[in-house]
Design a protein around this nucleic acid. Structure first.
Lengths: 338, 338
DNA sequence: CGTATATATGAAAACGATTTCATTTTAGTG
DNA sequence: CACTAAAATGAAATCGTTTTCATATATACG
């Protein structure tokens, strides 16, 4: 593999001059520039990025932490993040924590060992205090999880308000007993949504149901399981607020199979407005988040901090959500009769 | 940030000894080892990975090229790849080509610039000859796309056989006129599946339909569009072989909306056996690929080549597929009546 | 006890770039 | 034409490790 030294020799010039050409720096005459370019071409030279990284103390790489990439919410986020990062000349390394605090810490170490310039966390498995240590090594941006005490930029929708609106929507369409199906019992997303959920119930004089049962709910499978648990333990429930469309889909799948009618017998609302919520039959009412914009903002914020430096201050970037009404919450609707 | 030099000074020893401790090498006495470890702890030392990379000429990083991470087929693959890579101490950087040859080349450059030790390609946008050049810089493993002339390991199912079986399945359940809905007109996957598709038609004496119409089909949206195109131009079609479950789902969604009955009026089969194929109503018959095993094998093969060296030879790793029968191809079935 | 062998240790080279600094050449000005 | 400023060039230091090689000490053996 040709090195910069080889190119210099071939062109009869110094490493310095070659480096200047590579980096488009001034103070190199036209004829030399051409000679260097010819030499590079002739030798098939390409700069070694490890050497560059070492000297310049930059990696042009960021890490994105998430639970699992197969979860549509996260893969939509990371899709846009990768695109935006690529625009800025950054690579993205994908870090699946599978909700394990240890794995999360392992990945945070990438920052200390200088394998990445910065980190975007779309979930949080450790106490914030643990994560905060790593800010000494590089910038971190929080996406989705709003830790109000974290001295970093935080990008999210107003989860409390969204959950409040979702719950009110269920109530106004006739739900009188509502289950709150949301994973990540100790996550900030959970707490914020729960707050909004309870606020709505309280406002409309509905008593909340003990939801210990539902605390690990996250995917299609748990949605299916929860349908049966609810049938068994809370047969009078007629409204379900699911924390994701997959969960809602799993729930509805079992309901249909069991002959329980959605929305006639139970109203269901999902979250994220993924493709599945439109495709399901009945289609699923859902809260839409502006993934693309949020992801883009995260990358912009992080890159800015990497390149311009950062100081430790909390900074909220709140994006608008939107409730997309569909069949699963429209008991009177005669749309798409099957 | 503390360097190895700082640790050495602090411990009153040489860089060499510290390095030996870090890398668990022999020939360092117990007392020195302890002194070094204490020093590292005291200074919060962590080795700089850029320096390591430069010296050892290894990055412990691989790149995975794919069209889009939001496509379930690819995010299932990459999920398992990341896990397996992580087990081996490798990072994964995600490279979305969005089907653009230029983007693919940009990402292949990662190999030349030594930003990654190797590459897994799950799709192919350039001619193989273009890609082959990069083998000089590091190993490449092909996943899914079977380029029979490529001197690299290739991991895939028998696409031709799978397509053949899918088509036969449609025919045996009553289809007499069948559309082949598959994206990536010039991909190897396309060609292999088309071969199997045509073989089945031919065997059963069915004339193929000119499929120019359907060549860019890949996601839910195109599935929806194709339903209407087929209704308009080939109203007599009563069987659809879709290249992915999303496409099948989009197709069925529009069919249901239009009052066309699946499977009674049209049989539909999908590919990949994703969650959606079970959740849809009617549920979708599909071909299952062993993602996890295939992904794991890809990473193993690549890591092996990275660490043990590689020679240029074609090597096929064919995995078994399985047809999962569901409602969308069972006209007589009274399962889950709605 | 002398000699061969294994264990411990460190100085210095190497990895391949970028950057600083000193020096030379060219251009500009009165 | 002399003198200063700007442009062009390269030698050498630097980034932070790992590795080679030389050397010193401890252990084993006949």
């Amino acid at each position: 593999m040709a090195t910069i030294e080889d190119v210099a020799k071939f062109a009869g010039l110094s490493r310095t001059t070659v480096s200047r050409v590579i980096n488009d720096q001034p103070y190199v005459s036209e004829d030399k520039r051409v000679r260097v370019e010819d030499a590079m071409k002739a030798l098939g030279y390409v700069p070694n990025s490890s050497a560059r990284r070492l000297r310049s103390q930059k990696t042009e790489t960021i890490a994105v932490l998430l639970p699992r990439i197969t979860n549509p919410f996260f893969n939509h986020l990371i899709e846009s993040m990768e695109m935006k990062a690529s625009e800025w000349g950054y690579q993205v390394i994908i870090c699946q924590t599978h909700n394990l605090p240890d794995k999360e810490r392992d990945y945070l170490e990438l920052l200390r060992t200088k394998q990445v310039d910065g980190i975007i966390m779309t979930s949080l498995e450790n106490e914030w205090e643990v994560v905060e240590e790593y800010l000494q090594s590089g910038p971190i941006v929080l996406c989705n999880e709003n830790v109000s005490t974290a001295p970093v930029p935080v990008v999210h929708i107003d989860q409390e308000k969204a959950a409040y609106e979702a719950t009110i929507h269920l109530i106004e369409n006739g739900a009188t007993e509502i289950a709150f199906l949301q994973g990540g019992h100790d996550s900030y997303v959970f707490r914020d949504r729960e707050k909004g959920f309870l606020k709505a119930l309280n406002e409309r004089g509905i008593l909340p149901i003990d939801n210990e049962l539902f605390s690990s709910a996250v995917d299609v499978k748990s949605g299916r399981e929860l349908f049966h648990q609810i049938q068994a333990h809370y047969p009078s429930i007629n409204g379900v607020f699911a924390g994701s469309d997959e969960m809602a889909a799993g729930f509805i799948y079992e309901a249909v199979k069991a002959g329980v009618k959605v929305p006639e017998d139970i109203l269901v609302i999902g979250f994220d407005n993924q493709a599945i919520s439109m495709l399901m039959n009945p289609s699923i009412t859902s809260i839409e988040q502006p993934f693309q914009e949020m992801a883009g903002r995260c990358v912009e914020l992080l890159v800015h901090q990497v390149e311009q430096g950062y100081d430790l201050k909390h900074e909220e970037h709140v994006f608008p959500h939107r409730l997309q009404s569909r069949v699963s919450t429209s008991p009177q609707s005669n749309l798409v009769p099957l």
